[in-house]
Computed example of a mutant assay.
Amino acid sequence: MHLGHVRTDDGVSPVIGVILMVAITVVLATIVAGFALGLEERKMDTAPNAEFEFDYDSGASTLEITHANGDEVREDRVTIKGHSNGPKTPDWTGDTDTDDYFSAGATYTATGVGSDDTVKVVWEGPNGDSTTLATWEQ
């Protein structure tokens, strides 16, 4: 009879199976989290979908710009370009929000606007990209 060293592999298979299942779960969670965070980051970098209305007063050379509808917009990302007092990052009034965003109902009055000017409401993204949200021409 041989009483030497006996080797059994009975407990190895379940342990390896558990380790592989944990590893697969961690990899999948990392992939899903990266995808979800990536989508949120891209969403924040896209231009808002907003509509603006314009009311021009030629006697006073002013153009009232009103956020008529759509997404709320971050104030420091919007400039008004194309008139003698522009470009300017406006302070929107009449907005019910107290944070750094403005929404429908907020207005800004641009001064020094001539009848031959082309005034643009421009959104500037964090990566230096820009999108014209609205354009006014007489």
Rank of each mutant, 00 (worst) to 15 (best):
His5Trp: 11
Thr46Gly: 10
Gly112Phe: 08
Val15Met: 11
Asn69Pro: 02
Pro87Trp: 05
Val113Gly: 04
Leu133Gln: 01
Ala33Gln: 13
Gly128Pro: 05
Leu37Tyr: 13
Asp129Tyr: 00
Trp136Val: 01
Lys120Gln: 15
Thr111Val: 08
Thr8Val: 11
Leu28Ile: 15
Lys43Thr: 13
Gly82Ile: 08
Ala106Phe: 07
Thr96Leu: 14
Thr96Ala: 15
Ser130Trp: 01
Trp92Gln: 03
Pro126Asp: 13
Val6Cys: 03
Asp9Tyr: 15
Thr8Asp: 13
Met1Ser: 06
Leu20Glu: 12
Trp92Tyr: 07
Tyr108Leu: 01
Met44Trp: 11
Glu64Ser: 11
Thr118Ile: 12
Ser58Cys: 07
Ala68Glu: 09
Asn49Asp: 12
Pro48Arg: 08
Lys120Ser: 14
Thr89Asp: 02
Ala68Pro: 02
Gly114Trp: 03
Glu40Thr: 14
His5Gly: 09
Gly4Pro: 03
Glu64Pro: 01
Ser130Leu: 04
Glu51Tyr: 09
Val27Ser: 10
Pro90Trp: 03
His2Cys: 00
Ala106Arg: 04
Ala106His: 03
Ile19Cys: 09
Gly38Trp: 03
Thr62Cys: 08
Thr93Ala: 10
Asp117Arg: 09
Thr62Glu: 10
Leu28Gln: 14
Arg77Val: 05
Gly82Val: 07
Asp117Ile: 11
Asp45Leu: 14
Asp57Met: 06
Met44Val: 12
Ala110Thr: 03
Leu63Val: 04
Met1Ala: 05
Gly94Pro: 10
Ser130Tyr: 01
Leu37Cys: 04
Asp116Trp: 02
Leu133Tyr: 00
Tyr56Glu: 08
Ile16Cys: 05
Ile80Asp: 01
Trp92Ile: 02
Asp129Ser: 09
Leu28Asp: 11
Gln138Tyr: 01
Val119Gln: 05
Asp57Ile: 07
Gly112Trp: 05
Ala33Ser: 14
Ala29Leu: 12
Ile16Thr: 11
Ala104Trp: 06
Gly17Ser: 12
Gly114Lys: 06
Val18Phe: 14
Ser130Ala: 13
Ala36Gln: 13
Asp97Arg: 15
Lys81Pro: 00
Pro14Val: 01
Pro87Met: 05
Asp97Lys: 10
Glu124Cys: 00
Val119Ile: 10
Gly112Val: 06
Thr8Asn: 10
Arg42Val: 07
Gly70Val: 04
Thr46Asp: 13
Phe35Asn: 10
Met21Gly: 09
Gly11Gln: 12
Glu64Met: 12
Gly114Ala: 08
Phe52Val: 03
Pro14Thr: 03
Ala23Pro: 05
Ala47Pro: 10
Asn85Thr: 09
Gly114Phe: 01
Glu64His: 01
Glu41Gly: 03
Glu64Val: 10
Trp92Met: 13
Asn85Tyr: 07
Asp55Leu: 07
Pro48Asp: 06
Ser115Phe: 00
Ala60Leu: 10
Val78His: 00
Ala29Asn: 06
Val119Trp: 04
Glu124Met: 04
Phe54Glu: 04
Asp95Arg: 01
Tyr108Met: 02
Glu53Tyr: 00
Ala23Leu: 14
Ala33Pro: 02
Gly70His: 06
Gly94Tyr: 11
Pro48Leu: 06
Val78Pro: 00
Gly4Arg: 04
Thr96Gln: 15
Asp99Gln: 07
Gly59Ile: 05
Gly105Pro: 05
Gly38Leu: 04
Leu20Phe: 08
Lys88Trp: 01
Glu40Pro: 03
Glu72Lys: 12
Ala60Tyr: 02
Val27Glu: 07
Glu75Thr: 07
Thr62Gly: 06
Ser13Cys: 09
Asp95Ser: 11
Thr111His: 09
